[in-house]
Write a protein that binds this DNA or RNA. Structure first.
Lengths: 244, 244
DNA sequence: CGCCTCTTTGAGAAGCTTCAATGTGAGTGG
DNA sequence: CCACTCACATTGAAGCTTCTCAAAGAGGCG
């Protein structure tokens, strides 16, 4: 994996909402990143530790999570290729959560100092980072709503719809669905449910004909109905919001 | 309420983690804000509408929430005096949630354009805003964990501890506790519970001697035990993190 | 004093969890 | 190439937390 073109993906993400001037684009691409390939379940951030670098997911999937006193785990966010995992740690002294890969992944690792410098000297890049954070916060809010006020069936449908949308944005969705890179236990940890109940909820959706399954490949024959079941509206993803 | 000194509180918040140079401080205080006093339950932001201004809470309490299809409400965050409610809307075209006052409140209303200008031209202010957003995101993550993986008793204890900490930071906590500015229904909406079950959980904590109550005044005779019950650690609030 | 909102309590039902066991498929070494 | 293994998925039964519905008590404000 070449070190330079790895950052193309980061640039694409930052420019999702407004293009950057040429000088800023060059500055982003000139970040001193190095590539790294890691296996599934690799820790990228550990709760309580000082952050050392900004990680950008080039391929593969990742998630953030926290462990409660009882030992239970709650997944608090999912990350797709192109996501920058650690704007979080740009200005905070200690990580407040863990981050781990879900699958094998290729990473671009940028030293924090370089990222700070970039953000400090280039207001438009700072703005793009800020927008990214605002959208991430919006997704966190929707997850609170999902877990707090929807039943298992709706939660699951909502998660599937969100993932479909996000895969679509980055061009990773197949015409008929996608491969969800999570075990049922991980899905449960993301939804505040047990894996057993996730299994039953999947079965229910499947029997209703709302989803189809071949291994981890999930199809959506009636996406409209599924969105209704999940009370899903993609407004919170702020997909097409170029700013004035 | 004088228009100029209203912004002192915002400045104090921005400077919580690192002091700003004199020029930046003056720029913040020179924001074209106007004061406004509103009654409880006043809407400050409505989901789906374009944001019009940045609101800073000078006194009183507020919350953000979303309504699901069934009509249930989920509160996704609480806000105390000094909180800026609308960095969220700085760069997003549509609000993805509602914001409403909990109590009577005094607000400083800053036009979005002025706030954008400030953030664009002053990197250190931008950094302070970014830090504020990072901490808010951290709180959102902890709420997901709280709702997803703790039982009613622990959730309630956690909320009470968080509120205690945050009141403390801004100097609003009495030696023996505080007045929680929420009805039991609102507490339920914040915790993903029903008001009935909140009532029973409060009663339980009270009978165990972990909290005392006089109306809405809540006391904490055994704060250490309460923190254990709520699995509470204030790390996620990033209280004392000056940055290098 | 009376009204209105908020709190409190009870009883039954529902949803989700827990525990435990069995089924399944992909990868591995003999 | 097959048996073995290991992680993951699936199923059943029982129990517990939380919800729902409903009604009665309490407190503050005009």
């Amino acid at each position: 994996m070449a070190d330079t073109d790895t950052l193309e993906l980061l640039l694409r993400k930052l420019e999702r909402h407004t293009p950057l001037p040429e000088a800023d684009r060059r500055a982003v691409l000139a970040l001193p990143a190095h590539g790294r390939s890691v296996p599934p379940a690799t820790y990228l951030v550990r709760e309580g530790e000082p952050p050392t670098s900004c990680v950008v997911l080039l391929s593969g999937f990742a998630f953030r999570h926290k462990i409660v006193e009882s030992g239970a785990r709650q997944i608090v966010s999912l990350h797709l290729p192109g996501d920058a995992l650690d704007f979080q740690s740009l200005y905070l002294r200690y990580a407040d959560h863990n981050a781990q890969t879900l699958t094998r992944a290729d990473l671009a690792v940028v030293p924090i100092a370089a990222m700070r410098e970039l953000v400090t000297t280039r207001p438009l890049v700072a703005r793009a980072v800020l927008m990214d954070l605002l959208i991430e916060a919006s997704i966190l809010r929707e997850w609170i709503v999902n877990i707090g006020r929807r039943n298992a069936r709706a939660r699951l449908a909502h998660l599937l719809c969100e993932f479909a949308c996000r895969m679509d944005i980055i061009g990773l969705s197949e015409p008929d669905g996608y491969a969800l890179p999570m075990t049922q236990e991980q899905i449960g940890d993301a939804l505040g449910l047990t894996s057993v109940h996730v299994n039953r909820s999947i079965k229910a959706l499947s029997q209703e004909g709302l989803i189809t399954r071949k291994g981890r490949l999930i199809g959506f024959p009636h996406i409209k109905e599924l969105r209704e079941v999940g009370d899903f509206s993609e407004l919170y993803l702020h997909l097409d919001e170029a700013i004035g």
